[in-house]
Nucleic acid binder design. Structure first.
Length: 334
DNA sequence: AAAAACTGCAACCGCCAGATA
DNA sequence: CTATCTGGCGGTTGCAGTTTT
C-alpha cells in the first residue's frame, strides 16, 4: 500500500487547476479519448499525476456534466437512494446523469444532512431521531409481504429485513405506499430479484462518458423485455395523452396474459381513469420499475409529490423485471 | 472596517480490488 | 503465488468566498 507511483514522482503540481492545465487536458482527452490515465500527464504535457487528471476530467471537464443547483426531483432521488444505499456515492451518482459522486457527496454533507437533522431525522438511518415508535406505527401491511417482493430468504439479502423495510419506507414526509387487499394475491416481481440493491446496482457500470447502460444486452439474454417504452405517449382509454406524472396508479392486472377489460371497468375506483400501460418506466421510492406492456390500469392525478416531466428525452430507460399482480402505489413517471 | 466564523466545493489521501507481470 | 500497477471509491482537508460579529 501507499502512494501511487505516479504521485511519488517529484515536481508534480498540486492544488487548483489553472485554465491552461484544463485546456491541455481537455484537448488531449478530446483528441485521444479516455484511456490509461497514468500516461495522460506525460502525453498531455501536464505536471500532474494521472489520478489528478482523471479526477479533474470526471468532476469538472467532462462535457456532459450538469451544472448548477440540484432540482427538487434530484434532491428527492438522492434522499431515497441514500436511504437504500448509504454513502455509496458512485452508485447514487449513476442514477443522476450529469452529476458526479463528489458533487452529490458535497451536496449531501453541506445541505441534505443538515436539512434532515432539522426535520429531526437521523441522516444515517433516515429514522426520526427521538421516537422509534413513530416509525413502527407507520409501517404498513405492505412490508409484511416483503417475501413476495423478494422471494428469497432474508438471510441471503445483503440487507436485513429491518433495513429493507426502512429502505422502502417513506421519507421526506411523503406517502409512497398504501396497502391494498389485492396485494395478497400478487407478487411484485415475477423474476427472482433477491438483492434489494440490485435495482440500483445494475446501473453501476454505466459508461461515465456516455451514460449508456451496457446492461441491456445482459437483460436481453435473460429474457427481459428491454424494448424502450413509449414514455411520451402515455395514453389513456379516451385517447388523450398524459405527460405529467405523479399519480396514484391503481394497476390491476390479470395473472394471465389475457386481460379482461370489462372486469377492470367494473372495478374502476371512484375518481380513477382507466388506461393501458405500454411498458412505461416509473420511479418508486427512488427505485426504477417498469410496467409490462398491455396491462390495464387506473390512474388519478395526485397533488402531493408533484413531479413535472418535461419530455420524452428526459426519461431514463433502465432495464428491469416486469411487474405482475395487483397493487396500489404512488409512482413517479421518470 | 477588520477580524472571526461559517460555508461550499475542488482536490487530495488512503484504501481496496482487479489486472498483469 | 506474490508483487506491482492502476483505476475507482469514500472520507477528509484546505482554500476562497461570504456572512456575522
Amino acid at each position: 500500500m501507499g502512494r501511487h507511483s505516479c504521485c511519488v514522482k517529484q515536481k508534480l503540481r498540486k492544488g487548483l487547476w489553472s485554465p491552461e492545465e484544463d485546456e491541455k487536458l481537455l484537448k488531449y482527452i478530446t483528441r485521444f479519448g479516455v484511456g490509461c490515465w497514468s500516461s495522460v500527464p506525460k502525453h498531455a504535457g501536464l505536471q500532474r499525476c494521472g489520478k489528478s487528471c482523471r479526477l479533474r476530467w470526471i468532476n469538472y471537464l467532462r462535457p456532459d456534466l450538469k451544472r448548477g443547483m440540484f432540482s427538487q426531483q434530484e434532491e428527492d432521488l438522492i434522499l431515497n437512494l441514500h436511504q437504500v444505499l448509504g454513502n455509496r456515492w458512485a452508485q447514487i451518482a449513476a442514477q443522476l446523469p450529469g452529476r458526479t459522486d463528489n458533487e452529490i457527496k458535497n451536496f449531501w454533507n453541506s445541505c441534505l444532512k443538515k436539512k434532515l437533522m432539522k426535520q429531526g431525522i437521523d441522516p444515517n438511518t433516515h429514522k426520526p431521531i427521538t421516537d422509534n415508535n413513530d416509525v413502527k406505527d407507520k409501517k404498513i401491511e405492505f412490508f409484511d409481504k416483503k417475501s413476495e417482493f423478494f422471494p428469497c430468504s432474508s438471510s441471503s439479502m445483503p440487507m436485513g429485513g429491518a433495513e429493507l423495510e426502512q429502505a422502502f419506507h417513506v421519507n421526506n414526509g411523503g406517502l409512497i405506499l398504501s396497502s391494498s387487499s389485492s396485494m395478497e394475491t400478487g407478487s411484485f416481481l415475477t423474476k427472482s430479484v433477491c438483492d434489494p440493491l440490485f435495482l440500483v446496482e445494475f446501473q453501476s457500470d454505466i459508461d461515465p462518458i456516455t451514460y449508456n447502460s451496457n446492461l441491456l444486452s445482459q437483460y436481453q439474454q435473460t429474457g427481459y423485455d428491454t424494448s424502450l417504452p413509449n414514455l411520451a405517449s402515455f395514453s389513456d382509454h379516451s385517447g388523450s395523452k398524459m405527460n405529467t406524472s405523479s399519480f396514484i396508479m391503481n394497476e390491476a392486472r390479470e395473472s394471465s396474459s389475457t386481460t379482461n377489460s370489462s372486469q377492470m371497468n367494473n372495478s374502476l375506483s371512484a375518481g380513477f381513469q382507466q388506461m393501458t400501460f405500454e411498458g412505461e418506466m416509473f420511479q418508486f421510492n427512488g427505485i426504477n420499475v417498469k410496467s409490462e406492456e398491455g396491462c390495464i390500469g387506473q390512474w388519478e392525478q395526485q397533488n402531493m409529490h408533484e413531479v413535472q416531466v418535461n419530455n420524452a428525452s428526459d426519461f431514463n430507460i433502465y432495464p428491469m423485471g416486469s411487474l405482475s399482480g395487483e397493487y396500489t402505489d404512488v409512482f413517479h413517471q421518470i
